[in-house]
Amino acid sequence: MRRLTIRPLAALTALAALAAPALTGCGTQTGGGPAADPASDGGTVRTVRAQHLLRLTQTHEETGMTLLEGPTFGEDGRLVVVDVTAPAGEPKVWSVDVRRKTSRALHTDDRGAYTSAQFSPYDGRLYLTDFAHGDIVSLAPDGGDPRTFFSGEVDGTPMNPDDIAFDREGNLYVSDSRGLTEGVSQGRVVRIDRAGRKATVLAVGLAATNGISFDTGHRGLWISELTENRVSYLRLDGEGRVTSRHTALRVDGGIAQTDSIAVDADGNLYQALHGRPAMAVYDRHGERLATVEVPARDAKGLESATNVAVTPGGTRAYMTVSGPAGGHLYTFDALAEGIRQSNGG
């Protein structure tokens, strides 16, 4: 989804230009059975029908769109969601009570275009990526006390931070989606120490780096590359450095592109699709297991599923879906329990 620029409006225009063609998670409900779609091994891909939970936002007159992202559960059990294109003064971070189906504004400002959210295991604060300015901002869990955690160039080049994955010690691994507007492979993966003082480039030459998530053992990172519709795997050593890299998946998305990515307790990958209100689910060996879809009656006005959070310790999943009909939350049963890697980013 989604170049550092001095003017937020210019960044939002770039976001809208990209999104225009595509934009005009313990439960018991799962939908459907095996679908007729063939899997890569000759089997079948199950279709999971997501159920509507609530509409969170409407299209903003100022920006011409709304785009929900970054669902993540806080310790209070509430789901935090960001609206990438919310204008100044309107809620840019929301807190949602998924049981009561109610929401309240958590944070707004006159600057940020936030594309992801995740709570740090180190200090418990909520971290947001500001794609428009290359910053990473943190908030208190209640949405107050905003701080700029990291800002500036990395190896002489500004970032376009998209998603975040935390390691066990609280260091950040950031997908830097450079080259998005040019369609060239300038994307990076950047590691920032938990104090925000040292930034290290771990990988370069990626195609608009978007989703990022650790595998279940923290031995490597799954990275989705938006403009190539592929998922790469970066193996790490004990110091958090990349020792090898390979293409792990090629996603047959058609008009849709690979957006954010999440991993459940069984190591399954949930690949969000920018340009279709659906997610593709794979096992760690690359076998396509399922497609999560919204009901057909809703699909016309909802054209992008950007991310998912699976309830920690449970299987109920919450998917952010947006389009001309507004920004919505849909819910479904994940294939396995939620862990940190399936809770934000």
Rank of each mutant, 00 (worst) to 15 (best):
S120G: 00
S120P: 00
S120M: 03
P121G: 02
P121V: 07
P121K: 02
P121Y: 13
P121R: 01
Y122N: 12
Y122D: 15
G124D: 05
R125C: 08
R125F: 00
R125W: 04
L126G: 05
Y127F: 11
L128Q: 11
L128M: 12
D130P: 06
F131G: 07
A132E: 07
A132F: 02
A132G: 13
H133N: 11
G134E: 06
G134V: 03
G134A: 05
G134M: 03
D135S: 12
V137P: 00
S138H: 08
L139S: 02
A140F: 08
A140T: 06
A140I: 05
A140M: 11
P141V: 04
D142C: 08
D142Y: 04
G143M: 00
G144F: 02
G144W: 01
D145F: 06
D145M: 13
D145E: 15
P146T: 11
P146A: 07
R147T: 13
R147V: 09
R147W: 01
T148F: 10
T148Y: 07
F149N: 01
F150R: 02
G152C: 01
D155S: 12
D155A: 11
D155G: 06
D155L: 04
D155W: 07
G156F: 01
G156S: 00
T157R: 15
T157F: 12
P158V: 01
P158C: 03
M159K: 04
N160M: 15
P161T: 08
D162Y: 07
D162F: 02
D162S: 14
I164Q: 05
A165S: 03
A165F: 04
D167W: 07
E169F: 10
E169A: 15
G170D: 03
G170Y: 02
N171K: 07
L172M: 04
Y173C: 11
Y173W: 04
V174H: 02
S175V: 04
S175Y: 01
S175G: 14
S175W: 05
D176K: 01
D176E: 03
D176H: 02
S177I: 09
S177V: 05
R178A: 13
R178V: 06
R178T: 13
R178F: 10
G179V: 02
G179Y: 05
G179L: 01
T181R: 14
G183A: 08
V184I: 15
V184G: 06
V184F: 10
S185F: 08
G187Q: 10
R188G: 05
R188Q: 10
R188L: 11
R188H: 10
V189E: 09
R191S: 14
R191A: 14
R191K: 13
I192N: 05
I192Y: 11
R194Y: 02
R194D: 08
R194M: 06
A195D: 15
G196N: 01
G196Y: 00
G196S: 05
K198V: 15
A199G: 04
A199S: 09
T200I: 02
T200N: 02
T200S: 07
G205K: 13
L206N: 10
L206T: 12
L206P: 09
A207I: 11
A208K: 11
T209F: 03
N210A: 09
N210M: 03
G211T: 02
I212C: 09
S213P: 10
S213V: 09
S213F: 12
S213Y: 11
F214M: 07
D215C: 04
D215A: 03
G217R: 15
G217I: 14
G217N: 15
H218L: 14
